[in-house]
Amino acid sequence: MSERLTRPTSLWEYANPRRFMALSGFLLPWVAIGTAATLLIGLVWGFFFTPDDYRQGSTVKIIYVHVPSAMIAINCWLMMLITSLVWLIRRHHVSALAAKAAAPIGATMTVIALLTGAIWGQPMWGTWWAWDPRLTSFLILFLFYLGYMALWAAVENPDTAAELTSVLCIVGSVFAVLSRYALVFWNQGLHQGASLSLDKEENVSDVFYWPLLLCIAGFVGFFILLILIRTRTEVRARRLQALIARERMA
């Protein structure tokens, strides 16, 4: 096994993707089982066995999907930033492909966070949507994901696409952070002191804490699982493209 991995054959052009495929193939079933167990226990515990909040009633149960998805939505972009930097600096192809694989997950998580937030906000704040900085920055984060994915889809040469999207991801990160602070300022400018945002620390008491932690762990596991699956797909797609191109050349 190890000999096959260290000796470069024609099967995979790069040593790195081969090693990634071997490792991820080994990890995949374990991650899948772990994720399924954690997510199931966390969600069932949260949904069936936690009391209602005295203020929010049963809507507090939305926290078990809202908070984890929001965390993944933000940290997914962070992961894309890191993998983009790794690609630009170290030239690991898998890194660029992982960033590409991550973007749709992040976009989906952003949508989940926005939708569950809207459903939560409707009975609690009396409105589906408010231009609160936190909500607005998630909407803008979603736009960043869209632009990033559109650029990946639009550029034909995969290496050029990887580099351009990496540059966009780095510049976009700076602007995303800037937007976040701009929105805090902007909202304060609009309605001074009146904050619709719930204080998370106040909200989470011990009864909700452990199932929430499990759900977050489950979402992180799910994220890793999807990243592995999707990156493996991207690596295979690249290999396929290379083979077809070589076939045409021959």
Partner: peptide, 8 residues
């Protein structure tokens, strides 16, 4: 509301 959030 809760069910819709989970379903979505």
């Amino acid at each position: 509301d809760v069910l819709a959030a989970y379903a979505v």
